[in-house]
């Protein structure tokens, strides 16, 4: 049985019919076509499905869509600027060559959005801990941490400038 719910996805209000038994991961991928949200383990282990709900990174594979009613969801599709440019965080991943196959990256970028948004500097070990809910089979993580560090610095610089 379908249920109509409304939520805010990537800054736009959407109203859609969902099955109350489905995960937010399935709703975002299948009903809204937001395929940056990856399906990895489906049990909260890998972080590939990470999105922000009300600014907080969660694993959308173990989050029921009905819980997202009236809430604001952000995925990688929502990061680009109105003119289509990549966000500074995405750019930092490219600049630091932090991406190999890319499967884990959208999830990590969403965690990075939360980290960078905190507006403070972290030790590398703190960043490791903040990213520990993600598995990457390719990069060995070093470049990913470089990229997040760079994105944090860029944000702090822009705060000082602004």
């Amino acid at each position: 049985m379908l249920e109509i719910i409304s939520m805010r996805v990537n800054g736009k209000d959407v109203e859609l019919a969902i099955d109350p038994r489905e995960s937010l991961l399935d709703t975002l991928r299948r009903r809204l076509g937001l395929t940056s949200v990856k399906k990895g383990c489906e049990v909260g282990e890998c972080g590939a499905c990470t999105v922000l709900v009300e600014g907080e990174a969660i694993d959308s594979c173990i989050y029921l869509t009905v819980w997202a009613k009236g809430k604001s969801i952000l995925t990688v599709e929502g990061l680009k600027s109105p003119t289509g440019e990549l966000s500074p965080i995405q750019q930092a991943f490219i600049d630091e060559a932090a991406v190999q196959c890319g499967f884990c990256i959208p999830g990590i970028i969403m965690s990075a959005v939360e980290i960078v948004g905190a507006g403070r500097r972290y030790e590398r070990d703190e960043l490791r801990k903040l990213l520990s809910g993600h598995l990457c089979r390719c990069t060995g993580y070093e470049k990913i941490i470089d990229a997040v560090e760079k994105a944090v610095e860029a944000k702090l610089a822009s705060q000082r400038a602004g």
Partner: peptide
């Protein structure tokens, strides 16, 4: 507990 996402859930 777990990782950051699990601790937020």
């Amino acid at each position: 507990v777990g990782g950051p996402q699990i601790r937020s859930m």
